[in-house]
Simulated assay, not measured.
Amino acid sequence: MTVHNIATVEEFKEAIAKNPIVVLDAFATWCGPCKAIAPTVAKWSEEPQFKDTVYFAKFDVDALPDLAQELGIRAMPTFVIFKNGDKADEFVGANPPALLATITKQL
């Protein structure tokens, strides 16, 4: 698996409808912490514990401001975790151990 780029609100809705667990990274291209944590998240998307159960996705808040507003994104990076189509958790910041714990508790 990989981190899928969400380019439209429709793609976002399809992702949370089709996948039991979605980790959505709300990022900005100019955000330093976003760039710092992105390789770690990409690595997790390949790990056996997540590979077949968690759908990793990301979207640029500047490209999809309507989605950012709908999700209440106030800082980047914000990771929103959906379980069975509903928002299950949220994590703000670029702290890999804490983010990993937040994702893992949804499994």
Rank of each mutant, 00 (worst) to 15 (best):
D52T: 04
V92G: 09
A88N: 10
D52L: 03
C34R: 07
T104Y: 04
E70W: 04
I6R: 04
M1R: 09
T8L: 11
I73W: 05
A75N: 12
K18V: 04
I6G: 07
D89C: 02
D60A: 00
W30T: 07
A7Q: 15
T53Q: 07
V41I: 15
V23S: 12
V61G: 00
P33V: 10
Y55C: 05
K51T: 09
H4E: 13
A57F: 00
A26V: 03
I103V: 14
F91W: 04
A42H: 06
P96R: 01
V3M: 09
T104I: 06
P39C: 06
N5I: 11
V3Y: 05
F56H: 02
K87N: 03
K43W: 01
A88Q: 08
G93K: 04
G32S: 13
P97L: 00
I103T: 01
R74C: 07
V80P: 01
A94P: 12
P77Q: 11
E46L: 14
P33D: 12
V54T: 02
A38C: 06
R74K: 15
A38T: 14
F27W: 12
N19C: 13
M1K: 09
P48N: 12
K51S: 07
E47F: 02
D52I: 03
T53K: 10
V61R: 01
P77C: 06
E90A: 15
N5Q: 14
P48W: 00
P39L: 05
A101M: 08
W30A: 02
V54E: 00
A75E: 10
E90T: 12
I6Q: 08
L67M: 07
F50I: 01
P20R: 05
A75L: 12
I73L: 05
P33H: 14
F12T: 11
T104M: 07
W44H: 01
C34I: 11
K87L: 08
E10S: 15
Q106L: 11
